[in-house]
Structure formats: structure tokens, C-alpha cells
């Protein structure tokens, strides 16, 4: 088969491009640790959240030295708890579920962004290195008050952080 020199160049270039795409995504997954939010959690009954040990009381809970679990309920048209307060320099795992319709849990301006589906628990772990304040918004249209559905996520300096009474 007679292939023109330029065609060979284009074929090799296209192959390198594909290898490059796969290599960068692999670097992201293995080197940086970026992961996807999946549906591996057990399903729950969204009408029985009051009796669910994780979601009956939406809260921030310390589970390790620098590890926190946050149980969040999204409902028309609010997130509970609000604000969510966690310390800087910690690994925070969010467990988010919905009490009514499909919402989303989107920390504005970051890659923390997931759908929240009634009956499903969206689970994601995030590292907060620096103190700061983030807005949380719902980006799935969930009803007439959708545009007002928001909450605050406050990452406090490590030495100022204290879990509120009754929590933990």
C-alpha cells in the first residue's frame, strides 16, 4: 500500500493526540486523585428521611483527626444544614440526598457539583486546604423557588473551628 508521507504524519499525529488525551485523564485520576461521583451507595426511602440515622439530623460530624462527614438534605427550596461549617486542612465527605424532587449540590466556582436524586445518596470527598466561603446552589430546576435555593459552605481557619453543641 502506498501512503503519502503527509498522510503518515497525520495518522501518527492523530494517534499521539488520542494517547495524549488518555494520558492526561489517567494522570488526573492516578496522580491528582480526581474521581467521579457514582451510584454505589444503597438506596434509601426519601419519604422516611426522618427515621434515617444519617439524614434525620443533617449535620457535620467528625470521624477522624482531620476527617469530617457532612450529611446534607436538599429539599424545596433549601439545603440542611445551612451554613455548613468545616475546618481548613481537612478531608470532608459529603453525603447528600433529596427529600422530594431532583436537586443538585453545586459548590459555586469549584468542581464539587453533583445531582441529588430522591432515594439516592450522592457521596463525594473533598479536600479543603484554605479557609474561605463558598456558595452552594441548586442547578437542577426543582420548582417555583429554585432560584432561591442556596446555602453557605464556610471553611474556617483550623484554630477557630468548633463543632456546635449537640453535633457529633
Amino acid at each position: 500500500m502506498n501512503i503519502h508521507t503527509y498522510e503518515k504524519l497525520w495518522l501518527v499525529g492523530a494517534m499521539l493526540l488520542i494517547v495524549g488525551f488518555i494520558a492526561t485523564v489517567t494522570y488526573g485520576a492516578v496522580g491528582v486523585g480526581v474521581t467521579m461521583i457514582d451510584d454505589s451507595e444503597e438506596t434509601i426511602d426519601p419519604t422516611q428521611l426522618d427515621e434515617d440515622e444519617r439524614f434525620s439530623e443533617p449535620r457535620v460530624e467528625q470521624v477522624g483527626e482531620n476527617e469530617y462527614d457532612v450529611y446534607v438534605v436538599a429539599r424545596q427550596f433549601m439545603f440542611q444544614p445551612d451554613p455548613i461549617e468545616v475546618p481548613a486542612g481537612s478531608d470532608v465527605t459529603f453525603y447528600v440526598t433529596s427529600a422530594d424532587v431532583i436537586h443538585s449540590f453545586s459548590v459555586a466556582g469549584t468542581n464539587v457539583n453533583t445531582m441529588v436524586i430522591p432515594g439516592e445518596v450522592s457521596t463525594m470527598t473533598v479536600e479543603f486546604d484554605e479557609p474561605g466561603e463558598y456558595g452552594i446552589v441548586c442547578n437542577e430546576y426543582c420548582g417555583s423557588g429554585h432560584h432561591a435555593m442556596e446555602a453557605m459552605l464556610i471553611v474556617q481557619p483550623e484554630d477557630e473551628f468548633e463543632l456546635e453543641e449537640g453535633e457529633n
Binding site: 488526573g28 491528582v32 469549584t110 453533583t114 473533598v126
Partner: peptide, 24 residues
């Protein structure tokens, strides 16, 4: 294409911290 891919992945995506992390 190469430049825009690198820009999108390393600057726009990975630079947009915090990111969801964990084991694969």
C-alpha cells in the same frame, strides 16, 4: 487543539479547586 486541551484540563478543570477526590 493540543494547547486548548492542556489549557482546559490543567488550568480550567484541575485549577478549579476543590475537586472531588478519592480512590478510583
Amino acid at each position: 487543539l493540543v494547547f486548548l486541551w492542556l489549557f482546559m484540563y490543567f488550568v480550567e478543570f484541575l485549577g478549579n479547586e476543590p475537586t472531588v477526590v478519592g480512590l478510583i
